[in-house]
Design a protein around this nucleic acid. Structure first.
Lengths: 368, 368
DNA sequence: CCGTGATCTGACAACGTTGTCCAGACCTGC
DNA sequence: GCAGGTCTGGACAACGTTGTCAGATCACGG
């Protein structure tokens, strides 16, 4: 009786609220009429109901109407689990990303959803919170639900755990960051080139001491952007003091303290006159730091990777290297459905260009 | 053969890429090993595999190990559809909202996801794009998938279509806007009181001609906020010229033109000296309008409903009536799981307070 | 009136899992 | 050595749907 509830090992949902009451005897359990019930009510066979529900041909007007009436009167709704079990296809795809609430990822997610919808599929998504274990847990849970395909923004650098799934036919596309130790379709922004262009823009405006604050090494996009920074500096023949380079977590405190350090020229390096920021969150924190009253007399230039809302309304408006997250999502989803439609060729990598949007903060000349 | 593909009426996914090849005869279809396969490989019975997979007691160390090996060697993963079919519970909940990419809703969605995760459930979500038909389509698709519960941000004003589902035991909670023609749990911000407070704040700073630009009537939150606006004006004994009240779509063009009209005092009303904005999107457009160079000499006050990122960095920083979307989502999800845990009492309505955040734009005195 | 299709309908067996129930194997203590 | 118990393992029947296939019914021409 209480066996199920008393087993502490089992995580999932508590027993259905109804399970306790009717023990599937006596009065018919209140929940969910089935096709069988509909068939009985309409006085037809089971399969006929199935036909009506699925709009298959070969049912007379008259019968169809009787069945429809039974359906609405009973409030029947087809059980898709059973359907999936029988058909082997779920018409749903999974999306695993870092944080659904991140303004960079939410348009990506929305774009995937739109493409899925256009293909008659539902989207199930989950946030990995940048935790490799959670990514795996989520991706495998989605596979257990037999999603037809998977779009993943990796949080881990080893995706071998997906090999059996892919072999079993789950189409898989990675986006924003490459998969680890596995070959699969991939959609990326051109992070290296974007960063190079952004930093070159600062150089072109006369800056020689440029600070880089970005995400942790180990995150592919962060590495590429840092590489772009170094390339631009090298091309301009500028030295890079190691105190100007600060990859790490992107929380406000860390970014703020590194920024202040660079502005004050601690640890041997001379003070920077411009920042190149590795992403969204960093940019916003830098804007706050630079907007502080005591900084206003010596304005510091800033170019950020990733566009963000209202960037144009700040003073100064923020120059950015923009990616198009919706475009990334759309491309990834399209790649996915291409696979689902049977494409069987080599995994391909799609690279999307970035756009430098000049607004003001990147054109401030060096001071001091 | 081609029957399925040729039927134009059927929307779902194209036939599985594999279905075509092996016709489940001859060589065993490559996809997906089942528990039966694992049992065969390990030389044990079917149920024993099930026991191992579910961590049930009553399997010897030795056998368990053999089974585990077979599982990894075959790359087996339990088919949750079959499990759901058998158990009747999916450990997943659905969320239908307006737009996943909206900065107001994405934290809400994320909060629901976190609560779901804490209860071992997965979240499936979809965007209704403010289209009642699409809301229904989505909600019913989720029900067909037998989600255990549903969180809905309504786009329609008639939810009778959900009655059979609720009767069948799908826990349902509405959030942000009330359900139509149906009783259900509900989580709301106190829109009326928030708007009243925001407008009163403008009045307290000397404004007598205040414009309201908000969302369409018919949207509950918009109506409440407009009601709050009128109440605050009435309390202060101020008349409201109808040209100061502009509910409608929230696209930039509409908002801009209405704002300009009010600022110039067209249609008989005198020009307004302050705006109360009905939501996020409207506020941002108003900020743009007011930031135009030609407006700067005669600053106009602004209080917006909904907080938004960087509001504090604009000049002037924007005073807002803030809701906490994550809190709304969390409350709704908790209400949902309360039901799933068996709570069977009357539907309840939870009202969450709003917070006036004073930043500057709302404290500008009337000019002219 | 019968044969011949064409149309409509229903029985039945899957799909892969889990709950029930029973049968052995293996102990323990007398 | 044996009765009584505890482990362990497996056969079998659901769960609700869909594909197959064969049976019923009907219209129509011969």
């Amino acid at each position: 009786m209480a066996a199920d509830a008393s087993d502490p090992a089992r995580p999932p949902l508590p027993a259905s609220p109804h399970a306790a009451g009717a023990h599937r005897g006596g009065r018919r359990h209140a929940g969910r009429p089935t096709m069988k019930d509909v068939a009985a009510q309409a006085g037809v066979g089971l399969k006929t109901v199935s036909r009506v529900v699925n709009g298959e041909a070969g049912v007379s007007q008259d019968t169809e109407q009787r069945v429809q009436e039974a359906i609405t009167s009973l409030g029947f709704r087809r059980n898709d689990s059973a359907r999936v079990l029988r058909k082997g296809t779920t018409a749903s795809i999974g999306l695993v990303l870092e944080d659904l609430a991140d303004p960079f990822y939410s348009p990506l997610s929305r774009a995937v959803e739109e493409v899925a919808r256009a293909h008659g599929a539902l989207l199930i998504n989950g946030s990995s919170a940048e935790d490799p274990e959670r990514e795996q847990e989520l991706a495998l849970a989605l596979c257990a639900r037999r999603v037809d395909g998977l779009v993943i923004v990796p949080a881990s650098d080893d995706h071998r755990y997906l090999a059996p799934e892919i072999a079993a036919g789950v189409a898989t596309v990675f986006v924003d960051r490459p998969p680890g130790r596995i070959a699969a379709d991939l959609v990326l922004s051109d992070n290296f080139e974007g960063a190079r262009e952004g930093v070159a823009h600062l150089v072109a405006h006369g800056h020689r001491r440029i600070g880089y604050i970005g995400d942790r090494p180990g995150i592919h996009t962060a590495e590429e952007r840092l590489r772009g920074y170094r390339a631009a500096m090298a091309e301009a023949g500028l030295p890079v003091a190691e105190s100007w380079v600060a990859p790490g977590r992107t929380d406000a405190d860390r970014v703020r303290s590194d920024a202040v350090r660079m502005l004050e020229g601690g640890r041997g390096g001379e003070p920077v006159t411009a920042f190149f920021s590795g992403n969204n969150r960093v940019t916003v924190t830098l804007v706050r730091v630079l907007a502080a009253p005591e900084r206003r007399e010596r304005p510091v230039a800033l170019v950020g990777f990733d566009d963000f809302e209202l960037a144009d309304l700040l003073s100064p408006p923020v120059t950015v290297v923009a990616q198009d997250p919706a475009d990334l999502g759309r491309s990834a989803a399209e790649l996915l459905f291409r696979r689902l439609d049977g494409a069987d060729d080599e995994p391909r990598t799609v690279s999307r260009p970035t756009t430098l949007i000049v607004r003001g903060s990147g054109e401030i000349p060096p001071s001091g």
